[in-house]
Write a protein that binds this DNA or RNA. Sequence first.
RNA 1: GCGGUAUUGGUGAAGUGGUUAACACAUCGGUUUGUGGUACCGACACACGUGGGUUCGAUUCCCACAUACCGCCCCA
Length: 423
Amino acid sequence: MRYQKPKGTADILPGESEKWQYVESVAQNVFSRYRFSEIRTPIFESYEVFERSSGDTSDIVSKEMYDFKDKGDRHIALRPEGTAGVVRAYVENKLYGPEYQRPYKVWYKGPMFRYERPQSGRQRQFHQIGLEAFGSDSPELDVEIISVGLNFLNELGVHNLKVAINTLGDPESRENYHKALVDYFTPFKDQLSDDSKVRLEKNPLRILDSKDENDKKFVADAPSILDYLNDASKERFEYLKSLLDDLDINYVVDPTMVRGLDYYNHTIFEFMVTDPAFNNKEITVLAGGRYNGLVEELGGKSEPGIGFGLGMERLMLLLKDEDIHVENNLDVYLVTIGDSAERASVKILSNLRRAGFSADKDYLQRKTKAQFKTADRLNAKYTVTIGDAELENDTANVKNMATGEQVSVSLENLAEELKKIEG
RNA sequence: GCGGUAUUGGUGAAGUGGUUAACACAUCGGUUUGUGGUACCGACACACGUGGGUUCGAUUCCCACAUACCGCCCCA
């Protein structure tokens, strides 16, 4: 093998691509019911867009970004996630203007890039489906976002989802909590893992997310964000929970849940699932939250926003074949016998297709028997056999492959005849 | 970036330091003239990821690299 695809990339081949199309069509469907429109933004952006939005302490910026200088010496990065580009587009196109209905609701799908070690459901070029809503700080909208995600996954047949929610509070609450964490962890600093020592300096919230067993002991007794919310933030969170109750959405509050990206505040959430595809370990398939400071951070007015992203590769692993509705229907397989029929087949096929049938034929000059074999294997509904005799009499033999019944019809009106047979 | 395991045909795979690299599936062809299944017969590895090394000789041993999978980090 001479060439191979770059590490961490995948070819999505026919057979698999139909599944992707199916998932994307369900997304399109569900999201438009919630009145989200598709937005398509560039796959690469100015490096600063991501640096600015994700925060330069985040791993995404510090070590996972695919960035390069283009021929014009611009610092470019392949998008590592979807939100930053959408926010940039929102600001650049002045979509916060009074002529636009708010909240401004969009969804996107497409490839993202992160320079990391490939693993099951994780690749360097991976794909996300996500959505964002701008211009409303309403908790009702938070719940709508959670519910559209849930709806989407349920429609695909993914059940047993665990919905975990948390709040990071408003900036004031977050600031207070930040201090409390530093005060709490600093005395144990020497006993923390090396990673967490760094986190203590840069982003103490991330310590809560540590997988280190020793760290976990300290995390267990760490102060909870829920105790540091100011009244407004607390009230908001309580209201949010009651809205989820109204919708009969089962959720758990996970006060240790944090976010890898810096721009979140208030509501954050993750949908987790435990599945054999991941060795029965709990993995996150969808995650999102509110980011009220981000639009301003990228040069817009102070505008609230909320959204989520979900990983396609992980989702595809969760979907069972029977969940995926893929039809591969071949209406007609044309069997030709002899050179005249071979020649006539070009026009016959063309007419059938124009009449709306999916139709195909053999292009390898194979024997009749082999052609029927192929028709069988392709699961053709009908075969149409043409030979010298048929061409002379202007007839065609139409065989119903399921019943084996064969009838002779007018070749001239083949498409019409087939429609009649179809009923 | 760190650690572990793996890498043989279209697919699943067996196997050995040395004449023809099992077996199965798939595919193609045939079993007398233009019809799908089954059965039977036949065909099907420029050679065992790439590059070095050890050896009289390596697909089998050693090293490096690449890729895949798993774990850490991080994340969807």
